[in-house]
Design a protein around this nucleic acid. Sequence first.
DNA 1: ACGAGATATTTCAAGCATGAAATTTCAAGA
DNA 2: TCTTGAAATTTCATGCTTGAAATATCTCGT
Lengths: 158, 158
Amino acid sequence: MVSAPLSSVSVGNGAKERLRLWIRLLRASRIVESELRERLKREFNSTLPRFDVMAALYRAPDGMLMSDLSRFLLVSNGNVTGIVDRLVSDGFVVRAQREGDRRTSIVRLTARGEEEFRSMAAIHEGWIGELLGDVAEDDARRLSAMLKSFRSNWEGEA
Amino acid sequence: MVSAPLSSVSVGNGAKERLRLWIRLLRASRIVESELRERLKREFNSTLPRFDVMAALYRAPDGMLMSDLSRFLLVSNGNVTGIVDRLVSDGFVVRAQREGDRRTSIVRLTARGEEEFRSMAAIHEGWIGELLGDVAEDDARRLSAMLKSFRSNWEGEA
DNA sequence: ACGAGATATTTCAAGCATGAAATTTCAAGA
DNA sequence: TCTTGAAATTTCATGCTTGAAATATCTCGT
């Protein structure tokens, strides 16, 4: 990944600096992601998408609709279907019918799912602390603040 | 994606701030990536991985080995095989035999591939300028510098 | 010359991701 | 009631991604 900057193909003005930023942002997140994937697989026989779904459900003890999950995680409906299917067959998650609307199903963590997630989350937090260890805590705070409002800036223009 | 912070499952000390940073970093890159994917598909009937491969080859007029590509792009060998296969069948890339070593093949952009890439790259740079438009150029520079040395920090510990 | 190991690449199975089409169910108005 | 459209979800085709196994070729010590 990480399309390098191309001095010979140029355009705007501040664009150069932002392009460089984007490339490094992408590279950094790919590196961390790939390390996380490896560790999740090794230690928990799981994946990042599964972890994300479980994290969302952990925050929602009453469960979530498939469409809520897909909205919250910024991924497509069909995608969530597959991930949840696999979590169900592993016994970490259940689909429950909702009274009064047979189209929807509420997805919830099972007790086993909760327990599994708790142990993953604790270790995951440690990993991130390690992998981003060289970012000074102060830098982390500033960077974080910088990225906080990121989405609202341009969404809806598409 | 974007596993939200979980105040109830806690661990280290500076870990909290770094976890938050990681979540936002991931979210930001997912949002930009998804917008880029959409536009590349719409405007060029292409994808980010294809763009990345073409960018790498554009910087290497003498071509690259498959293994060079895979190392440079931080993706697996098998992955590159598939992407290059598709680029070849679209006429943007060629595989050439190398004298003296029949194991390797050198991958190169075709003239059409170069031309196609030039027009993609110009527009791509504009998109990034737009999508990261609200990051002040100064912030971009600092952020960029902060991320520059990212990899060397911890790689090799795995 | 031979064989052992290293190197370069492809193939494969499994899972992730998208957007579009298909299903099923619901909500309301004629 | 009927039917038309909206809403929730699944299914499907295509492509990306990994890690492991399979191929093919090369290198080098003996």
